[in-house]
């Protein structure tokens, strides 16, 4: 079966983690896998090393996000595709996996619409519409390149950089990218590996949720997890069978996501 694995940037701060790489290789014995990664933390770190101070803006709902101007999207692509993606490909190649690194814009795999405007809360605490920079909302995912690679037993590793409808490269959310890819491949499972073990509400781990329950839970979970739940729901709405939000910082994190305890399964 086809499984899409999203590895969150919080798990990649020190490079591809051995626990994930090993378990990924083991899972490839039975399944066809696509890996989508994040890496916002490393983008910020590299940008600052290059002397490009990152600007963060806050939405009216209190969500803090990177402001991606032209220079930032160039650094973003350089780090996501050039560094993080390549490091994952090399780590898997070292284990004998035929990994191929692509970005969302290769083969028009992920097409996004650039957000021309953003509404932020400025330093005076007032709402202001500003130029949107180079972030995008994914509007289309094409499976052709991914299927071609999978049919030849290559393992696609995808960086969350999409092709804009005007030919530009765009910063897109890695979880949403995984959801779009899982949808277009009609994946059996979409596994979101993160630094927490599933969805926790009122101190309780939720083992299973329907899409409807997942939507209702959005306001009861913290920022970060709500975005993951939204992406998990999107993956199913896009055509994938089920989504799993699971701990990536444990031994055998992928095996655990299918059979273990530290996870939340979301079903239609």
């Amino acid at each position: 079966m086809v499984i899409v694995v999203k590895v969150g940037g919080s798990l990649l701060k020190l490079g591809p983690p051995e626990n994930i790489v090993q378990d990924f290789v083991k899972m490839l014995e039975e399944d066809k896998l696509v890996l989508v990664h994040g890496g916002g933390y490393e983008v910020t770190e590299m940008a600052e090393r290059l002397g490009k101070k990152q600007k963060f803006v806050v939405s009216p709902d209190g969500i803090r996000s990177r402001y991606t101007d032209k220079e930032t999207v160039e650094i973003y692509t350089m780090v996501m595709k050039g560094k993080i993606n390549s490091e994952i490909v090399l780590a898997l190649q070292a284990k004998g996996v035929r990994a191929v690194g692509i970005s969302g814009f290769d083969g028009s795999t992920l097409v996004a619409e650039r957000k021309k405007r953003l509404v932020i809360v400025d330093e005076r605490g007032r709402k202001v519409a500003i130029d949107g920079g180079y972030t995008g909302k994914i509007v289309k995912a094409n499976s052709e390149l991914l299927n071609t690679l999978l049919e030849k037993n290559f393992v696609p590793i995808v960086a969350p950089v999409a092709l804009g409808t005007e030919g530009e490269m765009l910063n897109v959310d890695g979880d949403r990218a995984a959801a779009a890819i899982a949808g277009c491949l009609k994946a059996e499972k979409t596994i979101f590996l993160t630094d927490v073990g599933g969805v926790i509400i009122d101190g309780q781990l939720i083992k299973e949720m329907s899409v409807e329950e997942a939507r209702k839970s959005l306001r009861k979970v913290g920022f970060g997890m709500d975005k993951k739940i939204m992406a998990a729901v999107e993956a199913i709405e896009n055509g994938a069978r089920e989504s799993i939000i699971s701990a990536g910082n444990i031994e055998n994190p992928l095996t655990n996501s299918l059979l273990g305890e530290n996870r939340t399964v979301i079903k239609p």
Binding site: S59, K115, L118, A129
Partner: peptide
């Protein structure tokens, strides 16, 4: 009139 702008701001 202000546009409806969703919150999907990338990584």
């Amino acid at each position: 009139p202000a546009e409806e702008i969703g919150e999907d701001w990338g990584e």
